[in-house]
Design a protein around this nucleic acid. Structure first.
Length: 624
RNA sequence: GCACCCAUAGCUCAACUGGAUAGAGCAUCGGUCUACGGAACCGAAGGUUGAAGGUUCGAAUCCUUCUGGGUGUACCA
């Protein structure tokens, strides 16, 4: 991933600012490091090397700057580490640090500090999540479906990742504008119009316009495919040409085509609405391509007037990111192509629309950053677009292509939009919900068989469980994968009840709630007047450390636009909780003090899971 | 041809952005406990991080070359 800054330089994205205890440790070290460092300018870099320990045996945190510092000072790393440790101010928050290996400084919080910190966390509705000191305004481009066909699994990633980023950035106090750049004006409507005029089944269209339009779209595209297989250049395909002509007529304002477009649009939007509802995704704006259509001639004129765009081979183009328009054969082989704003036939392209969109977003919301949650194949397009938009004068905001890998079929081949066997989103959600319910019922039967008292859910509750579990499974599967790599679509894995899945987290949440129900305990007390926390077992200590790390995970996810850092955190939290349950009885704790302390931890685990899943757009149920 | 992305355990994925012995989940094998919710826990086995060089105290991570896959590449979006 890269960020285009105002100066046009390519820079890595911002680093994680660290969780609230990291600054605390850095403050502790700052004077000693400053005294030992020959170059004061490097002190912040050294302090940045105070980070969570990679291995719990080494403590809670580790300071890794002694090696670099020793080299700069011409000393031996372990000696430098020892000197710095000796120079630390006295504190009751950490145990005496130890020096190990080539000069690592290992740090461990005292139990007293952890107990105090987690008790403070209990009264904090934000669970430690900081509000940004300097809130920024983000415009996030997400989802962007082609409205002429039903959503399929390929649209999941942009929608789900984009929605999670909206929620995460908002949670940290930023202003976020979500904008769904609908594909509602391109060739797909030429295809629909041509298909409607020549191949429609009138009865089917009357009965269900949505389905008939979808059929026509697929039908025409299959005809294109044939041309490809015959090794004909797609542009020579007469059918495609005919569709392009219908598109051009629409764009030129042809009354018949415009009327058809207006007739088709509501049906197309109706096709999308229930899916967004089911996914629990609300996008602030849906300014599609058609919205920008009237602005396109002005965009091209303006860019030509400013000397950024010009004619080449009958089209109007903007140079590639390097500022070059290749003209000779040799250049065309070596250089990236320019982007076309207006084709030879006068039609505008999506590059022009994207430029109009940038101008509109910049003028309307004055964002500090514009994020495009769009698949990796469009990297070249955005590279060119961002570079030239900056030259055009829209250089205040950072442009980020938050790209993600393709969804692959079981054969590890990308899902092609035109290929058969593409799973429609609605069917996928139905299947996932059905599987979720089956597993729930199997689990209930199993528990009953083993003599447990089992709560009998009503049919309405079962439907709710199925939906929450099913949709959650699909979302979590996508979000838990680092977004840059391709990923293999696997429904069974998504709906698994073990491992790093939504179901496992939702179940962990339900377990927390169950303990309070079982003991008939009011949880409010643990949030308003929390009892003292007693850390008797290592499992409790590990759990507390994990609870305190929630802000760190969220901030890291926001810094690099990586929601999977939140799911990774959840998985660690869930594992720590499992061990805790195993080692520490809660309701049957040896003393009332310990029971209260453990109830506080259970309540915090439940709240943290709910909050973290909420940041990913995933819901929980109280019982399952 | 050129450009971008990727390659980690049998499979699916991590690795806190250069840190200590590369970790999980499936699958395989073994074990624990009448179980505050067993959708559990513990353990074993599984690796020359695609290959070869280089950078340095230290590399899955950074640089070069190569191999193998994906994607894009002047009038689709």
């Amino acid at each position: 991933m890269f960020v285009y800054r105002a100066n046009g330089r390519r820079e890595p994205a911002g680093r994680c600012p660290g969780h609230p205890h990291q600054p605390h440790l850095r403050t502790l070290f700052a004077p000693a490091v400053a005294a030992a460092a020959p170059d004061p300018a490097k002190v912040p870099d050294y302090l940045a090397a105070v980070k969570p320990a990679g291995n719990p045996e080494h403590g809670d945190y580790q300071a890794n700057f002694a090696m670099a510092l020793a080299k700069a000072a011409g000393k031996k790393p372990p000696e430098v580490a020892k000197e710095i440790v000796a120079a630390l101010p006295a504190t009751a928050d950490i145990e005496p640090p130890t020096v190990a290996g080539p000069g690592f400084i290992n740090l461990k919080f005292t139990s007293a500090f952890l107990a105090r910190a987690v008790r403070d966390l209990a009264t904090d509705e934000r669970l430690g999540l900081p509000l940004a000191a300097a809130p920024r305004t983000y415009v996030i481009d997400l989802s962007g479906p082609n409205v002429a066909k039903p959503l399929h699994v390929g649209h999941l990633r942009s929608t789900i990742i984009g929605d999670a980023l909206v929620r995460i950035l908002r949670a940290l106090g930023h202003t976020v504008v979500g904008d769904n750049h609908l594909g509602d004006w391109g060739l797909q409507f030429g295809i629909l119009i041509y298909g409607y005029k020549h191949f429609r089944d009138e009865a089917a269209f009357q009965a269900d316009p949505v389905r008939e339009l979808a059929r026509l779209y697929v039908y025409i595209n299959k005809q294109f495919k044939k041309a490809d297989d015959d090794d004909e250049a797609p542009t020579d395909d007469p059918l495609k040409k005919a569709c392009q002509e219908e598109t051009a007529k629409l764009h030129a304002g042809d009354p018949e085509n415009l009327a058809l477009w207006k007739q088709f649009m509501p049906a197309c939007l109706e096709m999308l609405r229930p899916i967004y509802e089911r996914l629990d995704v609300k996008i602030d704006h849906a300014l599609g391509e058609s919205f920008y259509n009237p602005m396109l001639p002005g965009i091209v004129e303006d860019m030509q007037a400013k000397g950024i765009a010009f004619e080449s081979k009958g089209a109007v183009v903007i140079p590639n990111a390097k500022g070059i328009v290749p003209r000779t054969e040799e250049e065309m082989k070596k250089e990236e192509p320019p982007a076309i704003l207006r084709k030879r036939d006068g039609a505008f392209t999506y590059t022009t629309t994207d430029l109009a969109t940038i101008r509109h977003r910049a003028d309307t919301w004055q964002p500090d950053a514009m994020l495009y949650v769009v698949g990796a194949p469009q990297a070249l397009h955005f590279k060119t677009l961002f570079a030239q938009a900056s030259r055009w004068g829209y250089d205040r905001a950072d442009y980020v292509h938050v790209q993600f890998g393709s969804m692959l079929g079981a054969d590890r081949k990308p899902f092609g939009a035109r290929k058969g066997g593409v799973v429609e989103l609605m069917d996928l959600l139905d299947d996932a919900a059905k599987l979720g319910l089956e597993k729930y019922e199997a689990s209930v039967a199993d528990r009953r068989e083993n003599g447990h008292k089992v709560y009998e859910a009503t049919d309405a509750e079962k439907r709710e469980i199925a939906e929450v579990v099913g949709v959650g499974a699909v979302k979590y599967a996508d979000l838990s994968q680092s977004r840059t790599t391709d990923y293999v679509f696997d429904l069974d894995k998504m709906t698994a009840t073990v491992g790093n899945t939504a179901t496992y987290m939702q179940y962990a949440y339900a377990r927390c709630r169950s303990i309070f129900r079982e003991g008939d305990i009011d949880d409010a007390r643990f949030r308003t007047a929390p009892p003292a926390v007693v850390l008797a077992e290592p499992a409790e200590r590990a759990l507390v450390l994990q609870l305190l790390r929630f802000p760190e995970a969220v901030e890291a996810a926001a810094a690099d636009y990586l929601p999977h850092l939140v799911t990774g955190y959840l998985w660690d939290l869930a594992k720590a909780t499992s061990v805790f349950y195993e080692k520490c009885h809660v309701l049957k704790a040896p003393t009332p003090e310990l029971r209260d302390s453990r109830l506080l931890l259970v309540d915090l685990v439940g709240r943290t899971i709910r909050r973290a899943l909420g940041l990913l757009g995933i819901r929980v149920v109280e019982r399952m």
